[in-house]
Amino acid sequence: MIIKCPHCGPRDLAEFSYHGDATLTRPDPASTDRDAWNAYVYDRTNPAGDHREYWQHSGGCRRHVVVSRNTLTHAITDVRFAGERK
């Protein structure tokens, strides 16, 4: 798998660390809603198909990126810096 880092260009998978599902929204830190926190911390869509996920280019520029990847084919359709909202 080759991930095209927006800063460094196309690099091998081995340079990246996987940081999990990027589709979740963290509840308000002051929230005491146990179900909301449970859903955020543990429950996952875990789709067979298109997925958005955090990776870090830990063996390169160390930027965090959001990768749009198909979990069936490993085809990557979009990579952008984390924080740049779609």
Binding site: M1, L13, A14, S17, Y18, N46, A48, H51, E53, R69, T71, L72, T73, H74
Partner: peptide, 11 residues
């Protein structure tokens, strides 16, 4: 492998 997948192949 470190990433989620349904492809039955790994790195």
């Amino acid at each position: 492998d470190q990433y989620t997948s349904y492809s039955q192949t790994g790195g």
